[in-house]
Design a protein around this nucleic acid. Structure first.
Length: 420
RNA sequence: GUGGGUAUGGCGCAGUUGGUUAGCGCGCAAGAUUGUGGCUCUUGAGGUCGUGGGUUCAAAUCCCAUUACCCACCCCA
């Protein structure tokens, strides 16, 4: 038996899972404030959805999907991202009949078969939002501002918001031709990879990291020059929104997203020493391209939670006191106390107080040690004397101070509440 | 898919040019007189040294293979 979790996966527990819960609560609160409602879609979908949605030439689709046949001979794929499933649900549930815009968010695991490294897993977790129903740049502003707000609330510094426009179908096609011509003319100055994919996807040369490619591509025509009037206005309006909302951003014409569904606006939030933390954009054609028979404009982003957590940890932003709560530990000395402790703990729990008692019949000393390790706020020991007097000493574990309290859950609870 | 590094008790590590019962710190457990934690001390449990071969009188230590993890490329969140 191999007891290692499969490659690229991990167990999340203890202090770490509490950090996740903490992050999730920030996310949910943010989404409430911005009016995004949660959606929970299946962890797997029909393979075809991703083929149509993400584009069948993308790397993710071509070599990174967990695809298999189920027992009914259906081709199933573990979701590699959240947008396709959300878009499918939007269509299937007839949300286009709801008041527009429809604003949704999701949190959950995604799966990609790739080599793990820093901030990169085969099962990774994304928080994402999708807004449907408006072609206006205000919807990009809405989405970007949520991402920015969240990172601000978490206290993260050094984040850069990069935006770009890929244009609509028409001007994107035109730009593609212009760029292809340029790349073709300079083919011998580019790396092997870029030469190989020159035909299939010349845009990729734009964000190639090889130095000679960067030199050459710095003179390449910018997509921004190829935008038609409408796309140009759209992009400029978005920038005005961001400026007025005081969200710092930079225009980076080199951003090329790896998923085919993006139109017009694309954006990335990056932080030092990490791959992209948030990536997204507008996808006006996706709903139609998955074969829904309707056309609905949309904007969304995905956020890598594993990466964000690394960032939070590096910047020392995770909550300090992150232990399982224990308001009071009720120990015992003797058989009668053992029974009484159980009853009292149960009564306290019924009052909503986190309470613990000994389950191993250990010595008083061992019990106190345990209470200390669990960082209980208070402790008490119940023996025959205490039962007879129906009161016991309650100890403040931080100060060591002891007081007397009646052996009734209500009184104990009241004492604890009074002595925070 | 490509390249580099690492793999020793729960965690973090040491193990010199191959040589007796594989160590240390933390953690865990019991105790240091009579019913009370955090400091200190004592004792204890726990490891087929990633796995499979090979060399040798002898291997955690050398060789080969394999797997996993880490880092980078690719790509992405």
């Amino acid at each position: 038996m191999n007891f290692q979790a499969p490659k690229g996966t991990k167990d999340i527990f203890g202090e770490e899972v509490r950090a996740w819960q903490w992050l999730e609560s920030h996310i949910r609160e943010t989404c409430n404030i911005f009016g995004f409602g949660e959606i929970r879609t299946p962890i797997f979908e029909h393979t075809e959805l991703f083929l149509r949605g993400m584009g069948d030439t993308t790397d993710v689709v071509q070599k990174e999907m967990y695809t298999f046949k189920d027992k009914g001979d259906r081709s199933i794929t573990l979701r590699p991202e959240g947008t396709a499933g959300t878009a499918r649900a939007f269509v299937e549930q007839g949300m286009y009949n709801d008041p527009m815009p429809a604003k949704l968010y999701y949190i959950g695991p995604n799966f990609r078969y790739e080599n793990p490294q820093a901030g990169r897993f085969r099962q990774h977790h994304q928080f994402g939002i999708e807004a449907f129903g408006s072609p206006e740049p205000a919807m990009e502003a809405e989405v970007i501002s949520l991402g920015y707000y969240l990172l601000q609330k978490l206290g993260i510094t050094g984040v850069t918001v990069c935006i770009n426009s890929l244009g609509c179908k028409e001007c994107h096609g035109e730009y593609r031709n212009r760029l292809k011509a340029f790349v073709g003319d300079n083919l011998n100055t580019l790396c092997e990879e870029c030469r190989k994919r020159f035909n299939k996807n010349p845009l990729r040369a734009l964000d190639c990291k090889v130095e000679k490619c960067r030199n050459t591509m710095s003179n390449a025509p910018s997509i921004l020059e190829s935008l038609d009037e409408e796309c140009k206005t759209h992009f400029e309006t978005l920038q005005t929104f961001l400026k007025d909302m005081e969200i710092p951003f930079i225009v980076n014409p080199k951003i090329v997203r790896g998923l085919d569904y993006y139109t017009r606006t694309v954006f990335e939030f990056t932080a030092e020493g990490l791959p992209t933390v948030i990536g997204g954009g507008r996808y006006d054609n996706l709903i139609e391209e998955i074969g829904s028979g309707i056309s609905v404009p949309a904007v969304g982003f995905g956020m890598g939670m594993d990466r964000l957590l690394i960032l939070l940890k590096n910047q020392n932003l995770l909550p300090e006191n992150n232990r399982l709560p224990c308001r009071i530990y009720i120990g015992h000395a003797g058989e009668a106390g053992y029974q009484k402790a159980k009853v009292l703990v149960h009564a306290l729990r019924n009052l909503g107080t986190a309470a613990e008692s000994d389950l191993l019949k250990r010595s008083v000393k061992a019990q106190m040690k345990y209470a200390g390790k669990r960082s209980a706020d208070f402790s008490m020991i119940i023996g025959d004397n205490e039962i007879e007097a129906n009161k016991a000493k309650i100890k403040n574990m931080e100060t060591g101070e002891q007081s007397e309290v009646a052996l009734e859950a209500d009184f104990i609870r009241a004492f604890i509440d009074k002595n925070q």
